[in-house]
Nucleic acid binder design. Sequence first.
DNA 1: CATAAATACGACTGTATAAGTCCGATTTTT
DNA 2: AAAAATCGGACTTATACAGTCGTATTTATG
Lengths: 134, 134
Amino acid sequence: MLQFSRKVEYGLIALKHFAIGPRGAIFTAKEISDEYNIPYDLLAKVLQKLARAGVLVSLHGVRGGYTLRMKPEEISLATIIDIIDNEKPLITACGCEDTECCERFDICTIREPLGKIQREINTFFQNVTLQKIL
Amino acid sequence: MLQFSRKVEYGLIALKHFAIGPRGAIFTAKEISDEYNIPYDLLAKVLQKLARAGVLVSLHGVRGGYTLRMKPEEISLATIIDIIDNEKPLITACGCEDTECCERFDICTIREPLGKIQREINTFFQNVTLQKIL
DNA sequence: CATAAATACGACTGTATAAGTCCGATTTTT
DNA sequence: AAAAATCGGACTTATACAGTCGTATTTATG
Ligand code: SF4
Ligand code: SF4
């Protein structure tokens, strides 16, 4: 169905929670997982990735949690997908560079045209910011 | 990675083969599977679906095969995905209609905004015709 | 300084879906 | 009659995703 992974959805829900909350507010993974009925362990990992990538700030220890580092209008959907799923939001063509990845590589007639579509979608996702999802 | 299924890729490769070949030319599933190194059984099913949906014409028996029924400029990527994967090319939001499908349905804060994105992508795919992939 | 509350992170398991295979039936030309 | 093709259901396998678990680390607070 060409849909986002749950991790990305969880990340978006969390990021939106930060974005619509008081500026600079701190929320823990548990609070968010409770509020939105998201598996705690899974959400925790997602938030960790976002923190490592600099989208969130993580605060260790008691009364710790996460808070938004980047501004909602600076965070693109493309970036979020890249961080959480470790990959560019390719919609179409393969990321193949050689016949190692796909035995059809040499004779494939759709790689180039799909690549063009891919770039267009990519641009689209880069222009969809968290701000626009609020 | 939000990529197309292999079936869709196979379908596209085959459709492009018809589109760039002589007008009205007949090709068998075997010919195409050989030429592009695609598993025969799998490709056969894809072509069958495209035939059932009216994109191709199927000709039974000896010297049979498939030929293009619709014009390349009339076949959209959205249609192809719909036919082959039995679903709309949703890129984003859930197809959920109720809490049956997702326990977060009531409290989900991203369903609406993602739905908007979904419609934009859908429109985009509707405007990408086979003609544009040649 | 002990405890509790939180993040951090790797390893593991389970599950759903996609990919691929196989078998037999039907159609049609020669 | 035989061969070449589509048709279609059932089946198996492979892979990626979702989710779980255990343990270590950090830090505020009484
Ligand atoms: S078939 Fe073409 S587009 Fe698909 S993975 Fe292979 S080379 Fe890439
Ligand atoms: S979390 Fe929201 S968008 Fe995702 S499946 Fe559930 S209701 Fe749909």
